[in-house]
């Protein structure tokens, strides 16, 4: 797989992933959760290119997700950026060709993304109430943390990790360095 080409395709791929997340992911629902396609793509990008560019993809992917989803604009951006930073911590020292690395990265990414997203929703709810903002949306964003962790984040963690297991062979086909730079 061409590493340079994939780099430039990341933004369109994130857009398509967000579109599929809002249309096709429901067909893949298992145990009440859907795979986080955009998150998986961001994790993949961070593993290949590092968190330096990963945060930008996280922002772009989050923006697309928020546009299609209708959640608070910017919330997915922040949650995905936190996830990309968390995933990027060991990215330079650990080889992604070790099968455990992408799987653990997915577990960490999903956990950080989920908990951050819930925290942001709670924060948005508090801000709306505190500032008595005009009701733009009737949705109440506050979610109970422990049930959300138990019934959504943990199952999603397993689901995303399983999907990443199948994506790993594709991920391993992307060379560690650009062919133009010489192996």
């Amino acid at each position: 797989m061409n590493r340079d080409l994939l780099f430039y395709l990341m933004i369109p791929l994130l857009f398509v992933a967000a579109l599929l997340q809002s249309t096709a992911a429901v067909r893949l629902e298992m145990g009440g959760v859907k795979p986080d396609l955009v998150l998986l793509l961001v994790v993949t990008g961070v593993l290949i290119y590092g968190s330096r560019t990963g945060v930008i993809w996280a922002f772009a992917g989050g923006l697309a997700l928020d546009i299609f989803s209708g959640g608070p604009m910017g919330s997915s951006c922040l949650a995905l950026m936190m996830a990309s930073l968390a995933v990027g911590v060991g990215q330079r020292t650990l080889s992604r060709f070790n099968v455990l690395v992408p799987l653990v990265a997915t577990i960490i990414g999903t956990f950080v993304y989920g908990t951050t997203y819930v925290a942001i929703l709670s924060w948005v709810e508090s801000a709306v109430n505190f500032l008595a903002l005009p009701s733009v949306s009737a949705v109440r964003y506050e979610l109970a943390f422990w049930p959300t962790l138990q019934f959504i984040i943990v199952p999603a963690l397993f689901y995303n990790t399983t999907v990443m297991l199948f994506l790993t062979p594709l991920l391993n086909r992307v060379p560690e360095r650009s062919e133009a730079m010489g192996m």
Binding site: T23, A24, V26, G32, V33, K34, L65, S76, V118, I153
Partner: peptide, 12 residues
């Protein structure tokens, strides 16, 4: 749009 999820996330 089915998903947002429907909302695009698992949360809403």
């Amino acid at each position: 749009g089915l998903a947002i999820s429907q909302e695009s996330t698992n949360f809403l």
